[in-house]
Amino acid sequence: MKIAKTIEEVRECIKEWRNEGLSIGLVPTMGYLHEGHQSLVKRACENDIVVVSIFVNPMQFGPQEDLSSYPRDLASDIRLCEENGVDLIFNPQSGEMYESDFCSYVDMSVLTEELCGLSRPEHFRGVCTVVSKLFNIVTPDRAYFGEKDAQQLAIIKRMVRDLNFNVEVIGCPIIREKDGLAKSSRNKYLNEEERKAALVLSESIQLGKKILEEGERDSAVLVKAMKDYIEAEPLVRIDYLKIVDSVSMHQVEKLESPVLVAMAVFVGKTRLIDNFIFSISENRSDSFYTSENRS
């Protein structure tokens, strides 16, 4: 396994592999890898070559967010990659990705105006910009993203379509702890009491799925029931809990097409997200977005 710090090093490797006719899969990450990332890497092994980027992207953090304290453990990340068949780690510094006079951005409207895009207004500009750069540097055949970040996944797919990137974007199921909490690098911030309180996310999802499967189609009714459940936990504060069309990300009042039920909550000072998709036509929760108890 190779570890590259520069764009030039990556391009040299990619050129060699392309000359050999090998397919390339990319797993973009910010490091502090866990079982969720591991599942992406394993899926990416359907390619001949697997590249993992490890880069805490400053552009997607707001001024009051946790850039400086975001968890990092490169040694552990390297071990996980080695154990799971990764061929190349791209671990650049900020100066390698962004020149001091950097002023070119990839932005998007519509899909970024709800959910995380509403509460973190510059976040997805940073995501789209860095992912575009990674696609240009690595030129992967396929790229793998977790479905826990459902809005991000929808945005990346739209960006690829709109800007004609020659890459297939593949979403991979949410990986959860045995008690249901979605795997996240930010779970490290939770103390013991907060960790228990955080279970209201997955528990409210189960409640929401049950309500929908019993026939409720009014978004307001569903949102109220889930919010009431979450707000009963004193350590938790809701950032948002909304029901949107799973493609357009527009809020819906009545459930008439596949919808994304998404939430972001603060458990203490830690912001966590979770979601599920509900397919109206089949009257079921789509397991593609709600894979429970995978580890």
Rank of each mutant, 00 (worst) to 15 (best):
Tyr105Ser: 09
Ile156Gln: 00
Val160Cys: 11
Leu201Thr: 06
Ile175Ala: 08
Gln60Leu: 08
Leu153Lys: 04
Leu67His: 06
Gln152Lys: 07
Glu213Pro: 14
Met59Trp: 06
Glu203Ala: 09
Val51Asn: 03
Met263Tyr: 04
Ile89Gln: 07
Gly25Cys: 01
Gln251Pro: 08
Asp286Cys: 10
Gln93Asp: 15
Asp149Lys: 06
Glu83Cys: 07
Val244Ala: 04
Tyr70Lys: 11
Thr6Glu: 07
Ser204Asp: 04
Ala225Pro: 11
Asp48Leu: 03
Asp149Pro: 10
Phe145Val: 04
Arg43Gln: 08
Asn187Gly: 10
Ile54Ala: 03
Asp286Ser: 13
Gly146Gln: 02
Met30Gln: 01
Tyr144Arg: 04
Glu203Leu: 14
Phe276Gln: 08
Leu134Asn: 01
Phe165Met: 07
Phe90Tyr: 05
Asp286Tyr: 06
Val41Gly: 02
Arg72Trp: 00
Val221Trp: 13
Lys157Thr: 11
Met226Val: 01
Ile78Trp: 01
Leu33Phe: 02
Val106Trp: 11
Ser291Ile: 02
Ala182Met: 00
Gln93Cys: 09
Gly208Ile: 00
Val169Met: 07
Gly95Pro: 09
Asn191Glu: 09
Arg195Val: 07
Leu80Thr: 00
Val259Ile: 14
Arg120Gly: 03
Ile273Val: 02
Val41Pro: 03
Phe288Cys: 14
Arg237Asn: 15
Val27Asn: 01
Arg120Lys: 10
Leu272Ala: 03
Cys81Glu: 07
Ile280Asn: 13
Glu35Asp: 14
Ala225Ser: 15
Arg142Trp: 06
Ser295Thr: 12
Leu26Met: 13
Phe124Gly: 06
Ile243Trp: 00
Glu9Trp: 01
Ile205Lys: 10
Arg161Asn: 15
Glu282Gly: 13
Glu292Asn: 07
Lys183Glu: 00
Glu16Ala: 14
Glu233Ser: 14
Ser291Ala: 03
Gly268Pro: 05
Ser94Tyr: 15
Met1Cys: 12
Arg125Asn: 09
Tyr240Leu: 08
Asn57Thr: 14
